[in-house]
Design a protein around this nucleic acid. Structure first.
Length: 861
DNA sequence: TCCAACTTTTAG
DNA sequence: CGGTCTAAAAGTTGGA
């Protein structure tokens, strides 16, 4: 009896049955709220379906666990037969990578793109895309003609072969092709002159860097002198190269027309229901518009493991066993998980609403769970801290017990662990474990939260409370082993805890709309979903830049990273510190940096490098000089790529917001809101990209000009407001800008009501806007009343925006209440103080004379 | 006790 | 290989 499944009455037993003396646990009261929730799932299931295996009484031999009769929900829907001659295959691609493989026996390895996806009917699919090869460019040397092509190719090929450390694949052809094309470098404006470039196509992606290095050092061929070549687009990931060239964006829908693809019956390498081969020019990529905005019914699996650690020692996979694995599987877009199961070591009492599978041997538990994972065939695997804990632990544990090393988790590819550490100015050093699982997207909720949310605490309990207002089942880590060594009731207690830990990430995923938001970001920026989770900000801009550049015959240079000096950023207006018991209007430039770049046509392609003006014979009408003294041509001469990208992003955002307003379907609303957000973030990261000094294409002329304009604008705004709103001009009082930071000014307009401040604020914003170039726009944002200005970047106030009668919130910036480097007592204390002096101000100020006097002393008046 | 250098955290 | 930006406050550390 290796595995059993039970379904019994309410939990019985308790401390009296525990083998270990004292009552370490105090739990045998009523079922928890979570247990009731689980039970409700069961009822819901019953209404819609006959009793399936889910609620049986029988003990099931382990071999039968995966039988379709017993666990019909585990598998995906049956895949209809696919006839490539008459059927078109349409699927949403969710992951895209490449591998090296042989097209036929005689030839060497070639890179093959692989797309994983899901069809509308929920069938999984793996598509091998053939025929796309990596390439890069170099400028053609002077006097180069097509007659030199073959010699160049031959020389480069032999140089590459000579330099290869080991020629494992026994390649003889590394350079597949060299062609002359007319291109222009995107860096700097040089009169729209196309020049000859050599497009060098290599046999494998990793040969690109090699060829680039050889050409950069010194390269001799034919009658040409030894020279070094700068390279273009040699640092582009192969996946991105393919996606840009074939107009595929992350998570888009792909159509394989009938007659254009082949179905694999044998030689299947994946566990997908459909596995097909197609040529890279045959597939159709649909832009994410209209019906192709939809999302396929993806399977999302969330899991959590429990280990029996030794007292006071963090569990180690080499020593401590895995005792439970809970899993929940949900279809994207549905409200509840349709699989709820926990695998336990040793017996465990039943839990209504979930399946309990008990094992006597840990190795069987692990093996069965791996089989479960393959059977469920999830598209997205989630959980909390799975990337650096659960998955590595399972893998190391399996290695220790010498099980499930092969077959592996997902594909026919062995899963291995890799350590990666990366450093950035922003994030510091960060160590991560990488666990390959081709075809399944690993979405560790902890990583998502670390990336996108600033929280006081990242424990699952704290996060759950923060977002869901719910506490976890409380089980101290120290008693896990005791619970395991107790009886089937204590192990049940543990299993409920484990199930909740698998359930909460699913809830969070839903609440934060992670899947939708990430998918929209992938679609907007054009990178694969997995890039968003494993890579930084830059790749998203590179992807967009390449797409835009390709349309105009521009190529992107490879620049060697060299850190330079920091450049000047934004201005913070010296605050007039104090407590303001009058309304303070706040005016903001919306999307300041993007709109500066658009208004002044700042781009790589419009930058005039030293001496270019004379060389190109440009008149002063053709270009502008930025506050930092850099020169850029006007859009009448050439429209920049970055302004183009930004316009696309911002107009798409406008469109998404308009659609959002009209849309009534809540699911489509979520998608549109996710898109709107992705577009905003993308627009704002373009500036950061140009200023990233160790980046793919830094251009400080752009970034320092942007901040330079920003500084100028905030000063000008201050002066404009203070010059117009004066007593001399017939206003009640002289307006005063009391503070401002980067893109905002706080103005004391001298009016005494919120509604009046709103009126004047709106008018002022509009008037100031008219002094700036389109699309720069100053907007009225909010009124603070009252307003406490402590210092630069530290203030608080009651926030009025939607209504002049009631405040939306108490807004605190930079103060202890929002900082995470104090204990909560400090935050609470300060928060109470602020509430008192901001919200209860009338009480203090007017009604209570005694306190009112103290108040005046405090305010120094 | 003071101060400069460094760290952490936020605003935008 | 990977890695948006600067300004600025306030706290910590360590040397004189």
């Amino acid at each position: 009896m290796d595995a059993k499944r039970r379904n019994g009455g309410p939990p019985r037993g308790g401390a009296s049955q525990a083998k270990r003396g004292k009552t370490v646990w105090d739990w045998e009261d009523s079922p928890s709220i979570f247990e009731e929730e689980l039970a409700l799932f069961e009822e819901a299931d019953m209404e819609t379906e006959e009793r399936e295996g889910q609620a049986g009484h029988d003990v099931i031999p382990v071999g039968e666990l995966f039988s379709a009769d017993l666990n019909p929900r585990w598998r995906r829907p049956q895949a209809a037969p696919l006839n490539p001659d008459s059927d078109t295959l349409v699927f949403q691609q969710i992951d895209l990578d490449y591998y090296l493989g042989k097209l036929c026996q005689s030839q060497g390895n070639v890179p093959i793109i692989r797309m994983f996806g899901v069809t509308d009917s929920g069938n999984s699919e793996c598509c091998h895309v053939h025929g796309f090869a990596p390439y890069f460019y170099i400028p053609a040397p002077n006097g180069f003609t097509s007659d030199h092509l073959s010699e160049f190719k031959r020389e480069l090929n032999s140089a590459v072969l000579k330099d290869m450390r080991s020629n494992k694949d026994n390649m003889s052809v590394t350079v597949l092709a060299v062609d002359i094309t007319r291109k222009e470098s995107m860096y700097g404006y040089h009169g729209k002159r196309l020049a000859d470039f050599l497009r060098i196509t290599m046999a494998m992606p990793r040969l690109i860097a090699l060829a680039k290095r050889l050409l950069e050092q010194s390269f001799k061929f034919g009658p040409f002198p030894i020279q070094s070549f700068s390279s273009y687009e040699a640092n582009i990931d192969f996946e991105i190269r393919f996606m840009v060239d074939s107009d595929v964006v992350g998570c888009c829908w792909i159509e394989l027309p009938k007659g254009k693809y082949r179905v694999r019956e044998e030689r299947k390498v994946s566990l997908c229901q459909y596995e097909v081969d197609v040529g890279w020019t045959q597939l159709i990529s649909h832009p994410a518009e209209g019906e192709y905005q939809r999302i396929a019914p993806l399977r999302v699996l969330s899991f959590d493991i429990e280990c029996a650690g030794r007292k006071g020692i963090f569990p180690e996979a080499e020593k401590d066993p895995v005792i439970q694995i809970a899993s929940m599987v949900q279809r994207q877009g549905e409200k509840e998980p349709f699989i709820r199961t926990v695998f336990t070591l040793q017996s465990c009492s039943s839990i209504v609403g979930s399946q309990v599978l008990c094992f006597t041997k840990e190795s069987q538990l692990l093996q069965s769970w791996a089989e479960f994972l393959r059977t469920v065939d999830a598209d997205i695997i989630t959980g909390y801290h799975i990337q650096n804990f659960d998955l590595p632990y399972l893998l190391n544990r399996a290695a220790t017990l010498k099980v499930i090393c092969s077959p592996t988790w997902a594909l026919g590819i062995k899963s291995v662990l890799r350590d990666s550490s990366f450093q950035s100015k922003q994030m510091g050093r960060r160590e991560n474990k990488i666990h390959n699982m081709e075809g399944r997207v690993q979405l560790d909720l902890l990583q998502v939260l670390l990336r996108d949310y600033k929280l006081r605490s990242y424990t699952l309990n704290a996060v759950s409370f923060h977002f869901l207002q719910e506490q976890k089942e409380d089980v101290q880590h120290s008693i896990i082993t005791d619970l395991q060594n107790g009886n089937e009731q204590t192990r049940r207690r543990l299993a409920v805890y484990c199930l909740k830990d698998a359930y909460v990430p699913l809830r969070l995923l839903q609440k934060l709309m992670c899947v939708i938001n990430y998918m929209e970001m992938a679609r907007v920026t054009g990178v694969p979903l997995t890039y968003l989770l494993s890579r930084g900000q830059q790749i998203k801009v590179v992807s967009q830049l390449l797409r835009q550049a390709m349309k105009q015959g521009l190529v992107m240079p490879v620049v060697k990273p060299e850190g330079g000096e920091d450049y000047t950023g934004a201005t913070v207006i010296e605050p007039e510190k104090g407590y303001y018991s009058v309304p303070i209007a706040t005016l903001d430039f919306s999307s300041l940096y993007p709109s500066i770049m658009m208004a002044h046509n700042l781009c790589y392609t419009t930058l005039l490098q030293k001496g270019s003006t004379e060389k190109l014979g440009l008149t002063p009408e053709d270009f502008i000089k930025t506050p930092t003294g850099d020169l850029f041509v006007k859009s009448s001469v050439r429209k920049g790529l970055l302004p183009d990208i930004l316009e696309d992003l911002l107009s798409a955002r406008k469109k998404a917001k308009a659609e959002l307003k009209k849309e009534t379907d809540p699911f489509k609303k979520q998608v549109l809101d996710g898109r709107q957000l992705a577009l905003k973030i993308s627009a704002n990261s373009v500036y950061g990209f140009t200023g990233a000094q160790v980046g793919k294409l830094p251009c400080l002329e752009i970034s320092q000009s942007v901040t330079g304009f920003g500084r100028q604008m905030i000063e000008q705004t201050k002066q404009l407001v203070e010059s117009k709103y004066t007593i001399a001009n017939g206003y009640q009082a002289d307006a005063k800008v009391i503070y401002g930071d980067t893109d905002s000014v706080m103005v004391k307009l001298g009016v005494d009501t919120v509604s009046r401040a709103m009126e004047v604020g709106r008018e002022a914003a509009e008037w100031v806007s008219s002094h700036f170039t389109q699309p720069i726009k100053l907007e009225f944002e909010k009124v603070y009343y009252p307003y406490l200005l402590i210092n630069k970047k530290r203030y608080a106030g009651l926030y009025f925006s939607s209504s002049a009668d009631t405040h939306d919130k108490m807004d605190c910036k930079g103060i202890e209440t929002v900082r995470r480097d104090n204990c909560t007592l400090v935050a609470n204390l300060i928060n109470t103080c602020l509430q008192t002096i901001l919200i209860d101000r009338y009480h203090l100020d007017h009604s209570d004379r005694q306190v009112g006097t103290t108040w005046n002393i405090l305010l120094d008046r």
